[in-house]
Structure formats: C-alpha cells, structure tokens
Amino acid sequence: MQRKFIIGIALIIAAIVYLIVSSSQASAQYFLTVEELQQKGQQMAGRELRISGAVLGETIQFDSATLDLSFDVVHIPGDNKEIEAQGGLAEVLHQAVIDPTLPRLHVVYNGPMPDLLKNEAQAIMTGTLDDAGVFHASELLLKCPTRYDEAVPEQTGN
C-alpha cells in the first residue's frame, strides 16, 4: 500500500520538476549587455533576450500614426558593482552616451512612446535579435535615475 503512495508522490514531484525545466528551456530570458550580445552575435538570434543599455537621445524616432518607435542604445555594464565603481548609474549612463567607442545597438519597438524614453535613460528591453543585428523589443522598461535625492531641499530661513 505505502509503495503506491510513494510512487504517486514521486510522480507529482517529477511533474513539478518537469514543468520547471521545460518552461525554463522554452521561456527563460537571457540578460545580456550590448557588448555581450554583439560578441555572441548570431548564436543568440531568435532567442528571448533581455538587454539593458543607455538611450541615445538624438536617435529616437517615433511615428505616432503607426506607433513605430526606434532608437539606439549604448553599452553599459551589466554588473551593479561595476556600475557603482564607475560612479553610479546616472554617471555611467551619462558617460555611455558621450563615448562613441562603446558598442551600440539599434532597437525597434511598436507601441506607445514611453514617458521616460529620453537621452541618458536606462532602457531594459525584452525581445529578439534579427539576422540584420536589429533588436526587436516586445517589452520596454525605462529607468531614469534622478539626482533629486541629493539636492538640498528648499527651506525656510531659520
């Protein structure tokens, strides 16, 4: 009798493990920097990827009739420690945008123009790379590190 239960429990556990493994193979997203993406190049084509980079303001193009949006992002380090070591996210983004030697990536997206999409914003994009090396984003997240934390607040004169 007890054997039946052990087999049953084992089957359920196996099913859970299977679900985790199969889903991971099908829909895990690889988090890469622009540089890593360009090094790996075509072997990553067609896979679901997450890329983070600094938005280059002058490259932003948006057609409000078709909602076609395109822009370039510049490589920034993927590692938080590295970012901190280089003076924080805001500084890293700022340096990336003015440094023409860093690798860049062309991104296309269809959808509303996000409010936060502007020069020196950090874009975190989910999507796939095509054969021509253009990144097709299906999801677009933006972060703008503000410095208003550091500013001394306005105060009354006492």
Binding site: L19, I20, S22, S23, S24, A26, S27, A28, Q29, Y30, F31, L32, E48, R50, G78, T126, E139
Partner: peptide, 12 residues
C-alpha cells in the same frame, strides 16, 4: 544572468 518573465510563470 537569466530571468523569467510572465510567460515562464504561466507555463510553469
């Protein structure tokens, strides 16, 4: 670094 999006959770 590998992350899981909603699709992963829905499937799993």
């Amino acid at each position: 670094k590998v992350t899981f999006g909603p699709e992963w959770y829905i499937r799993a």
